[in-house]
């Protein structure tokens, strides 16, 4: 299955959450591949803690591959190469976790027909080896998003592959509106996809939203604020829920809310068991939300034609 991580704006926690989902699925025994298509600012290698490995990516990364400059994009075995202390001992029973980094230099570029073919061939090749492929797209209706939309259209080569879109947004007015615009707006994914041959209802049914850095008012510190603050927060929450629903992001389309996590505010990283239980630096709720979301990716109950 191809999981496409998109967001309208930067700073939505898209890359870091997607990387965490890849990590969680790999811990569960799935073979997972993470493709860093964030051509503006590749961050996945930082999240996976691979400072040395990406140096070799220039000229051999995904940009170079898509543009035909190399026939084999660089692959990095995260378990073997990471410098994250908790990841160095790969747990028994875990699956492969491989990163295909973007080139360090080289930003967005318009794609040609040949690039789409190369993308399709790459995905088909990786399908043999991996249960789940994550594609981390740059923010907005980027060239990368268009490339993926074209490739996953019914005649694009990946139309029958079971593709799922995650649209990440923060829990604020601007972000909610931007996320809805990215999915359903005039220049959004569904309209653009329809123009490329997608059936709008099918494409729409494969898009789910993930709220990142969303405060949970029922747990600390938000549940311990002053009564006046609490009432105000509640009202804002209500207004936001109504706004989201009015823009098409009804509850059924929200796959998960990832709580506001201080650790992630300071450092884009994988949240591990050790962070929660041994060091006590990350919240248990964050880890649980990541795990639940990771499971829901392949749980058909959460996906449908609505």
């Amino acid at each position: 299955m191809l999981v496409l991580a998109a967001s309208d704006k930067g700073g939505t926690g898209r890359s870091v959450t997607a990387a965490n989902l890849a990590y969680q699925r790999s811990l569960d025994g799935d073979d997972v591949c993470f493709l860093d298509f964030d051509f503006g600012s590749p961050t996945a290698s930082a999240v996976f803690d691979l400072p040395d490995a990406v140096v070799g990516a220039d000229g051999r990364g995904l940009h170079s591959y898509l543009q035909g400059r190399t026939s084999e994009p660089l692959r990095i075995d995260v378990w073997a190469r990471t410098e994250h202390p908790a990841l160095r001992d790969r747990p028994s029973g875990s699956g492969r976790l491989v990163l295909l980094p973007g080139d360090r230099t080289g930003g967005e570029f318009p794609f040609a027909e040949a690039d789409r073919h190369r993308f399709v061939d790459l995905v088909l090749r990786l399908r043999h080896e991996f249960d789940l492929l994550f594609v981390d797209l740059s923010a907005g209706r980027s060239y990368a998003a268009d490339l993926v939309l074209a490739a996953t259209s019914p005649h694009g080569g990946l139309g029958r592959q079971g593709n799922r879109w995650l649209v990440f947004h923060r829990w604020t007015r601007q972000h909610v509106m931007a996320a809805a615009e990215l999915a359903y707006g005039n220049a959004g994914l569904v309209r653009a996809g329809a123009a490329m041959g997608h059936r709008p209802e099918v494409l729409s049914g494969s898009i789910r939203f993930v709220r990142a850095a969303a405060p949970d008012l029922e747990s600390p510190p938000w549940s311990q604020v002053s009564p006046a603050q609490y009432v105000w927060l509640r009202q804002c929450e209500q207004v936001l829920e109504e706004l989201a629903a009015a823009r098409g992001i009804c509850k059924a389309r929200v796959l998960a809310s990832i709580p506001l996590e201080p650790v992630l505010q300071w450092q884009e990283r994988l949240i591990t068991d050790e962070d929660v239980h041994d060091h006590g630096i990350a919240h248990h709720e964050t880890l649980r939300a990541m795990r639940d979301l990771a499971q829901r990716l392949t749980d058909d109950e959460f996906w449908g034609p609505w």
């Binding site: 073979d31 088909l124 043999h128 080896e129 991996f130 029958r160």
Partner: peptide, 15 residues
């Protein structure tokens, strides 16, 4: 592998 008769519903992941 691009042939349309291939369903890509692989029974197991391989190397």
């Amino acid at each position: 592998c691009r042939h349309r008769i291939l369903d890509f519903d692989l029974p197991l992941t391989t190397v």
